[in-house]
C-alpha cells in the first residue's frame, strides 16, 4: 500500500458542486505536498470529456481546474474504464489511465475519500 490518498469523483462536472469540492480536496493535499491521486468513477468520467464550455451556463469550465491539478502536483489521474465506454468519453483530456475500480485498485491507496 502506498502513502497516496485517493480522491474519488463520481458526480458529473455540472449540476452538482460535490465534484468541484472533491477536486479542491485533492488540490489542497497537493499544495501541502501530500501524495494524492484522482479517480473519476461512474458519471464522474464526464469531467474528462473534451470541449466543455461552462460559460454557456454561467459557470467556470471545471475541466480547466482539472488541467491545473497536474500542474499543482496531482500526479495520478484514473478513470473508470466501463464508465468511459458507457458515456462515450474518448480521448480524455487530460489523459487519464483507464482502470477497473475494484478491491485491488483501491487497495493501493492509504485512504479513499469521496464526497
Amino acid at each position: 500500500m502506498s502513502a497516496t490518498q485517493l480522491i474519488v469523483i463520481d458526480t458529473p462536472p455540472y449540476g452538482d458542486w460535490r465534484g468541484r469540492e472533491a477536486l479542491d480536496m485533492a488540490l489542497s493535499l497537493a499544495a501541502f505536498d501530500r501524495p494524492v491521486a484522482l479517480l473519476f468513477r461512474g458519471e464522474g468520467v464526464n469531467w474528462l470529456r473534451p470541449g466543455q464550455e461552462g460559460s454557456a451556463i454561467s459557470q467556470k469550465t471545471v475541466s480547466r481546474n482539472l488541467g491545473a491539478a497536474r500542474m499543482f502536483g496531482v500526479a495520478e489521474v484514473y478513470a473508470d474504464s466501463l464508465a468511459l465506454e458507457r458515456f462515450a468519453v474518448n480521448g480524455p483530456d487530460p489523459e487519464a489511465e483507464a482502470v477497473v475500480p475494484n478491491a485491488a485498485f483501491y487497495g493501493d491507496f492509504s485512504q479513499v475519500v469521496q464526497l
Binding site: Q5, D24, M25, S28, F32, R34, Q111, V113, Q114, L115
Partner: peptide, 20 residues
Amino acid sequence: AGLGEWVEAVATSDRVIYFH
C-alpha cells in the same frame, strides 16, 4: 479555516471518519 486543517487532520489523527 481552510482545507489545510483537514490536511493536518489526515496527517495526524489515527482515524478520519466521514459522514456524508
